[in-house]
């Protein structure tokens, strides 16, 4: 089987003799038996740590969850600085979690004592909290590729996770943090959805955040400026 790997500016091809293997198994085989200088990152090898996201034939996958096909082209994630070969620097996309203030404000003792979260309420953010921060969605996001300050898909999904949580008692902190360079910059193109290994739809979460923002009296600046433009033309 032949597999092609993008390394710096050139593509290296490897011939390997394994069938029905995950991409991570193939990369490990190459590193330990053919070329020890090949760089990639991995962790749990079971789809839950998010370390081995990369692109195969242009689409984002987890190497540990993808079965290699003949003549596949393997490339690093987009929209992140390449450290070496298939390894990218995740520092920047990770930092958007903080920008989005995606966390729960710790509840006080009294509130904890009376806490009641129904199974239905718990289900509201069950999927969002499956996120493994692999970065596939940032790689696929056309807005982030031209606007590197866009808060981006996984951080906004995380914001919605906490905003939608029945226990959250400070929704405005997070909603306020995602107004600028956040929810309104998203064009709702949906590119983030098919690439998510956990079947999360950040686009939907962004729509939910927009709705919640509207309820809280925040204004879509695009909407406002189009009104402004309208005024000016007269």
């Amino acid at each position: 089987m032949k597999i092609n790997i993008q390394r710096a500016s050139e593509i290296t091809s490897f011939s390997i003799d394994i069938e029905n293997a995950t991409l991570l198994e193939v990369l490990t085989y190459i590193k330990t038996k053919i070329d020890s200088s090949l760089a990639f990152s991995s962790g749990c090898r079971s789809g839950v740590c998010g370390s081995c996201a990369m692109r195969v034939n242009g689409k984002e996958v987890l190497a540990c969850a993808y079965k290699v096909q003949e003549d596949d082209l393997i490339e690093p994630l987009r929209n992140a600085p390449i450290v070496r070969d298939l390894v990218v620097d995740m520092q920047k996309s990770y930092a958007f979690n903080k920008v989005a203030k995606a966390w729960q404000t710790t509840l006080n003792e009294e509130k904890i004592q009376t806490l009641h979260v129904s199974p239905q309420q718990a289900q509201i953010n069950e999927l969002q909290s499956d996120c493994i921060l692999c970065g596939s969605c940032y790689s696929a996001c056309p807005v982030y590729s031209v606007n590197p300050e866009f808060i981006g898909p996984f951080a906004l999904t995380r914001a919605w996770r906490y905003v939608s949580d029945a226990r959250q008692n400070d929704v405005e902190k997070t909603i306020g943090a995602v107004q600028e360079k956040g929810i309104y910059d998203c064009t709702l193109c949906g590119e983030c959805i098919p690439v998510c290994p956990q079947n999360i739809a950040p686009k939907q979460d962004i729509v939910m955040l927009k709705n919640k923002s509207g309820v809280l009296g925040y204004m879509d600046p695009n909407f406002a400026s189009s009104f402004g433009g309208f005024d000016l033309s007269f």
Binding site: T106, L107, N108, I112, L115, V117, P119, Q121, D165, Q168
Partner: peptide, 14 residues
């Protein structure tokens, strides 16, 4: 629970 771990819940909300 107070910091927001999304636990599964019983019908009674526990």
């Amino acid at each position: 629970d107070s910091i927001g771990v999304p636990f599964s819940r019983t019908q009674e909300g526990k």
